[in-house]
Write a protein that binds this DNA or RNA. Structure first.
Lengths: 253, 253
DNA sequence: GAGTGGTCTAGACCACCTT
DNA sequence: AGGTGGTCTAGACCACTCA
């Protein structure tokens, strides 16, 4: 219908080179709209079928452009609700000891936490190795969802050795866990190990974040140790990829 | 044609719950093949049209499953060549001072570097601010592509102040840049700032990596300072997301 | 030149969110 | 109940890679 080798010039954002696929041109158009501030963070985009009207473009092509913007972190979707402009990311500094509640607040945003489940479950062998206990030993397992300005940005699974914090699960866990461990159990964290890698949000994590399975994410795994070298807390956090930045500043000593 | 509410049981990987879309079942099948070692790292997958044969599945659905695996970092594609199983990622530790060549070698892999361009270019105002020079001041700009075991994993743009390293561009830049700065110019790096965020590989970066625009990536920005607090080197690295892991280990002092 | 992935169309029905 | 995105089909042609 439309010649592909010579896209219509009026479809293009001014300044864009005239080559490349149509969905990238659409992407440029929408990106411009967002960056110019016509669509502020949190704003809802027109529906996919509305974006089609008049353009003669197939819905699949429109979606291709939306996926591109999603991968870039400019927009996100709420399952079966619509597409929205992403709020700015927060910065996480693994060299500081501040918890989520603290650093999100410091950046002028409003954090909140929701406990999804808490139970004492037998340790699978992988986890048992980390805690240096026998496989099957019951360990506290907590699943939480954390929000920034009401938007879910991460789900986490925290594992704590009951030997160090016996009736941890009887506390309210909707605040800072570190604070509870310090105040109620006199635990001092002396070492923190952090691993990070880009990932995809699969099923469980995606569902909990109201995202689609397969949307890009960042997996942050934190292991903290006390002064005796015992593992205090093992935490896997699945972040929406557009919600986090990592910052590390190091000086030679 | 096929009832969507009750997918055919023989299409499913044993052990998978019977709900969920068809492309996730396909994903499970393929993932199993990879994890069982039937397809070793680097192996080429059958073509999309081959994967269709006999299944009555549309090509789009097959691709959906492939995209999923790509997002998870299990497979990657070489543009218009095919889909391949991803090699293991390397681990990057921003708290160490080791360069790419060093830490890749340490992990039993073979690093290589290719200089794409080197020139002295006037500083855009954003970059000028970082180096605390007037906008338009000529700065060394180097673009490189780096490979692990022959596979391109990152492209970077490095900017260096010529005041600190006058005829840097006359050197061969296919090795360790840090080494050159230290040996030939007596520069000591005293501080390192690292920023990381998930991103999408857009046009330029994607092309240089032989990837498709929009594939997920990780952007690593490093700024190094000398003992006097001057910016020595400013480096933007665009990584394939399946090629890197970040590891930080911190002790209280 | 054969084969690959990349792009695009034009439909359809579904599950779920929203009101 | 109506609208949204999510999934799926069945084609088509293209640009490019590879042998």
């Amino acid at each position: 219908m439309r010649p592909k080798t010579e896209p219509l010039s009026w479809m293009r954002t001014p300044g864009t080179t005239a080559d490349g696929p149509q969905y990238l041109a659409l992407r440029d158009q929408m990106a411009l709209n967002i960056e110019m501030g016509n669509l502020p963070p949190g704003a809802k985009l027109p529906s996919e079928r509305q974006l089609q009207t008049g353009t003669g473009t197939a819905r699949g092509t429109i979606r291709e452009a939306l996926f591109q913007l999603e991968a870039e972190g400019l927009i996100y979707r709420r399952d079966r609700s619509g597409w929205y402009v992403s709020p700015p990311a927060v910065t996480y500094d693994p060299t500081r000891w501040a918890g989520f509640m603290t650093y999100v607040t410091e950046q002028g945003r409003t954090p909140s936490t929701e406990t999804l489940s808490k139970e004492s479950a037998p340790a699978p062998s992988v986890v048992a190795d980390i805690f240096r206990v026998a496989p099957g030993t019951p360990l506290h397992t907590i699943r939480r969802r954390r929000m920034i300005d009401g938007r879910p940005v991460l789900v986490e699974r925290i594992i704590v050795d009951p030997a160090l914090a016996p009736d941890l699960l009887s506390h309210s866990l909707d605040g800072s866990l570190t604070h509870i461990l310090t105040t109620h159990y006199g635990i001092t964290v002396a070492r923190n190990r952090v691993d990070m890698r880009p990932c995809a949000l699969v099923r469980e994590a995606a569902d909990a974040l109201g995202a689609k399975s397969g949307t890009p994410g960042l997996l942050v795994v934190r292991t903290s140790f006390d002064t005796a070298g015992r593992v205090v807390e093992y935490d896997q956090e699945y972040w929406r990829h557009d919600a986090i930045r990592v910052h590390v500043d190091l000086n030679v000593r």
